[in-house]
């Protein structure tokens, strides 16, 4: 199925969770902020969030320094 991640169309498998997608992209869930279809998804909901065809995700991965 197709989803949109940070503005680009991506193919991902049916039944993929948000947690699974982050793992696939090698992103540490403790260092990301995720918006799904315009709504922020809290960290504790990553594992339970099942991605659906056409989902639009904005994933910001933070790096340290300030």
């Amino acid at each position: 199925m197709k989803i949109i991640v940070n503005g680009s169309e991506r193919e991902t498998s049916e039944g993929r969770t948000l947690e699974g997608l982050l793992e696939e992209r090698k992103l540490d869930p403790q260092r990301v902020a995720v918006e799904r279809n315009g709504a922020i998804v809290s960290r504790e909901r990553f594992a339970a969030t099942l991605l659906e065809e056409g989902d639009t995700l904005e994933i910001v991965h933070f790096v340290g320094g300030g």
Partner: peptide, 8 residues
């Protein structure tokens, strides 16, 4: 913040 996890 400084730390990435704290930023998130």
């Amino acid at each position: 913040f400084d730390g990435a996890d704290q930023k998130a």
